[in-house]
Design a protein around this nucleic acid. Structure first.
Length: 838
DNA sequence: GACCTGCTGCGGGATG
């Protein structure tokens, strides 16, 4: 029989002593506490949170299931299962777990680590439901699925430990909200459950802890017994920026960064292996194509990885990297976390990482071994991004990181959870409400909101109550919530989860496998015979059928790259402020890198032509361009906020003198172009007038008036309705529903509700999300408040300034000629040859 | 008048 010392022995046998933070976590776990562990990747966080359960398994021989481990990714779940099994076997815990209730008595079961995710087979699923395995690894969605089975409650009530891995990834999304609700359920089943999280460093650690271990008396604060354990050893990040040579022209705008191709290739060839991160899938395809054109080695050593590629292609890239067969992988956020790559020597980031935390996350993909620094090569694609990297270097040195804000009061997610509970078995509504209010996400939930959620799951709400398909939840004789109809149960289990997104066509080779998926709208515009670039190759469209695009490898190399309509990554507030400070020369003394010197000419030019923005000084410029006057404003608050602000200011200026404006926004600011030629002169625009246009007063009403809110809400409604279970789920194994069919049913529902039930909770939810998620209203208000306090500088430079130029270019988009992509690559290749020739 | 964006993630279950 193994002993608790076996854990220490396991370490000792491998020649290293447990780190202080690991011991600290084990001690807290032994005291029966819950908590959160913060440490950089590759620092033994897994062992820190597995140590307590493992010791328990060695000492007390508890009944299975003992531990449930949640990860945000299926691939990570599989990796974790293997790692945990190895640890358990290595510690001699194999004999420790007595047979579970269902198994034959007398024979102890080995400490088996099970897997319950969408990829698990039916035998594995059955084991999970019985609680047959001592440890179980799963995803948030699969946990909700498990909880929707009444017969798992008994097994789950024996659970002693819950671990949430990569909590920072879930914390800020509805997936995290769903998990909070599931955890509340597990706590109700077993009040003694210990909950541990593992997270990268975030800017709001207390909130991260509270969302996982809420104080029952005030769920928006952490439980008084919960601990946060931090690995204090720094994980150094070496930042090297590829800067233009002295005197070299560097673009003031543009995001592709291909001008840097020769330098990037040089950097890649100088290291044994690299990950090249881009911000978008299209950009990844283009960079892969550009690199392939000048790749001096075996073509099979260069690979591509992004979220729209088929799982098999992605796995091939991951395996190749792990086996050391690949020299470079071009990737998007799809490789931000998950699979371990011990051998990546360096990470390259093309363009702006948009936030400090994202750079840290990506940097963490290199230098995985303890004591090794992470190496990042920054590839700015235009001049202002050099300033961004100067700011990033300072922020890294100061340890400033973005918060991940946990969403609150998502009634669509709550509705889904209530149905899950009722599907599992008769549920007392009052008890459930108390449980729900005990989470960070639903602390202080109003009685009226709860009533509306119940009305919705029981009848669909007022307008839909005559349609039987929206009557999902019934009441049993004692008034408890139940779902007895088996079709409804199945349908509900199919629609568990908060991830939405459809309208994608599968791309399939006529001879061969699936390559991935592409936006319906992109392929819909192509005719058979036309060529496009995808999955790193030129493909010819043969035909479209059943939501599948059949393709063959094209003979020609030309072709457009699909654009995916993805989310947008606005510049974070933390980075925006750092950039402002950097521009103003307030970046801080000491430790500055070469970026500051390299960006000095830009700052000098901006200062000479206009003025420099600064924290507490909002800069606006009116510039007479060839096409007429333009108003530029630079709050550095990210693209979303600027889009809202541009519409707001346009509305308010238009009230003073009727006019219409063309708007454009980027991460640094926005521009207004009046349609009438006299424009701002006719307005007599001055600082005082602009200040009024930027006033926080009447914000909500003016925003609503300035934007087509109902159209925005209509789109958001589809996501909300899907999560709340109002739209039929697509069935596994069948072709996904087309965007048009989904839009039709969601749009119809939207109109019905608007007309007959305008107070419906899902409409309110959709509108709230337009404000919060799309417009970033909280940040927008904060920006206006700051602007109201800040000094406003209205400059009238004689010509476009470095800050104005990218916005001007953005506005010109589409009106100017397109440069041939191939010519561009050839030019870059020629540059590279020149560089070699030197 | 230097130039062309837009991420990631998951998911039934009973029966032969």
């Amino acid at each position: 029989m193994a002993t608790p010392e076996a854990l220490e022995g396991w370490f000792a046998a491998r020649g290293f002593a447990p780190a202080a933070f690991q011991r600290e976590a084990w001690t807290a776990q032994a005291e029966g506490r819950s908590g959160l562990v913060n440490a950089p990747t590759g620092r033994g966080k897994t062992l820190a949170v597995a140590g307590g359960p493992l010791r328990g398994a060695l000492a007390d021989a508890p009944t299975a299931p003992q531990l449930l481990w949640i990860t945000p990714l299926k691939a990570l779940a599989e990796d974790t299962r293997r790692a945990l099994q190895a640890v358990a076997e290595g510690c001699g815990a194999m004999q420790a777990i007595p047979a579970s209730a269902g198994a034959r008595a007398g024979k102890p079961a080995p400490l088996r680590v099970g897997l319950r995710s969408g990829d698990a087979g039916s035998a594995e699923r059955a084991r999970a439901r019985r609680g047959a395995d001592a440890w179980l690894v799963s995803t948030p969605e699969s946990l909700s699925g498990l909880l929707s089975h009444g017969d798992t409650a008994e097994a789950l009530s024996r659970l002693r430990w819950l671990v949430v891995d990569e909590w920072h990834e879930l914390l800020g999304s509805k997936r995290g909200v769903l998990l909070q609700l599931a955890i509340a359920r597990l706590r109700a089943l077993n009040p003694g459950l210990r909950v541990w999280g593992v997270s990268a460093t975030v800017g709001n650690p207390d909130e991260a802890l509270a969302a996982l271990c809420p104080d029952p008396r005030d769920p928006r604060r952490p439980h008084p017994d919960a601990v946060r354990i931090v690995d204090p050893r720094p994980k150094p990040i070496e930042l090297a920026t590829l800067l233009p040579a002295t005197g070299e022209r560097f673009p003031f705008a543009g995001h592709l960064g291909l001008k840097q191709l020769p330098r990037v290739l040089q950097a890649i060839l100088a290291a044994p292996s690299s990950l090249l991160f881009t911000n978008t899938r299209a950009q990844a395809e283009l960079w892969h194509q550009a690199l392939a054109a000048v790749w001096p080695e075996d073509p099979s050593t260069l690979a591509l990885h992004h979220g729209s590629l088929d799982a098999n292609l992605r796995r091939a890239a991951e395996d190749g990297l792990r086996a050391g067969r690949l020299r470079c992988v071009v990737a998007t956020s799809s490789l931000d976390l998950g699979v371990d790559f011990p051998d990546v020597a360096q990470v390259l980031q093309v363009g702006s990482p948009k936030g400090v935390a994202r750079l840290v996350q990506r940097a963490g993909r290199s230098g995985h071994r303890p004591g090794e620094p992470s190496r990042v090569v920054a590839v700015p694609s235009h001049a202002l991004e050099i300033v961004e990297y100067a700011a990033l270097r300072r922020a890294l040195a100061d340890g400033r990181l973005e918060p991940r804000l946990p969403p609150r009061l998502c009634l669509d997610v709550l509705a889904q959870h209530v149905v899950s509970c009722a599907v599992a078995g008769p549920t007392d509504a009052d008890a459930l409400l108390a449980e729900v209010r005990g989470t960070h996400a639903f602390a202080g939930l109003a009685d009226s909101a709860w009533t509306a959620v119940l009305a919705f799951v029981e009848r669909g709400g007022e307008a839909l109550q005559h349609y039987p398909e929206y009557r999902r939840v019934e009441r049993d004789a004692s008034g408890r919530l139940v779902v007895t109809d088996r079709r409804q149960q199945l349908r509900h289990r199919l629609s568990i989860g908060t991830i939405t997104g459809d309208g994608h066509l599968t791309v399939q080779l006529l001879k061969g496998g699936r390559l991935g998926s592409v936006e319906e709208s992109f392929l819909g515009r192509l005719n058979p015979g036309e060529v496009f670039q995808f999955a790193g190759r030129a493909l010819e469209l043969v035909q479209l059928r059943d939501m599948t695009a059949y393709v063959r490898i094209a003979k020609t190399k030309a072709g457009n790259v699909p654009r995916w309509a993805g989310g947008t990554l606005p510049l974070s507030a933390t980075l925006g402020e750092a950039v402002q400070a950097e521009l103003a020369g307030q970046g801080g003394e000491g430790g500055e890198g070469p970026e500051r010197a390299a960006s000095a000419p830009l700052r000098a030019l901006q200062s000479r032509l206009s003025a420099l923005p600064a924290p507490g000084r909002l800069l606006a410029e009116v510039i007479a361009t060839r096409d007429g006057p333009r108003l530029f404003v630079y709050p550095f608050a990210g693209r979303h906020v600027h889009e809202g602000l541009a519409a707001l200011v346009a509305l308010r200026l238009g009230r003073l003198a009727p006019n219409t404006f063309t708007l454009a926004a980027n991460d640094y600011g926005f521009v207004l172009a009046p349609h009438t030629k006299r424009g701002f002169a006719a307005l007599g625009l001055d600082a005082a007038m602009l200040r009024r246009a930027l006033s926080p007063e009447g914000l909500q009403d003016d925003l609503a008036a300035s934007l087509n809110l109902s159209e925005l809400a209509r789109r958001q409604f589809r996501e909300v309705a899907r999560i709340a279970g109002l739209l039929p789920p697509s069935l596994p194994g069948r072709a996904p529903r087309s965007l048009r069919s989904l839009q039709a049913s969601s749009s119809l529902l939207f109109d019905v509700l608007r007309q007959h039930d305008p107070g419906h909770l899902l409409l309110a939810q959709a509108e709230a999300e337009v404000f919060e998620a799309q417009l970033d209203a909280t940040r927008l208000r904060a920006t206006l408040d700051a602007a109201a306090r800040a000094g406003l500088v209205l400059a009238t430079p004689p010509t476009l300034t470095p800050l104005a130029f990218p916005l001007w270019a953005e506005q010109q988009r589409g009106t100017l000629s397109t440069e041939d992509w191939k010519a561009r690559v050839e030019r870059a290749a020629a540059l590279l040859e020149d560089a070699h020739g030197d």
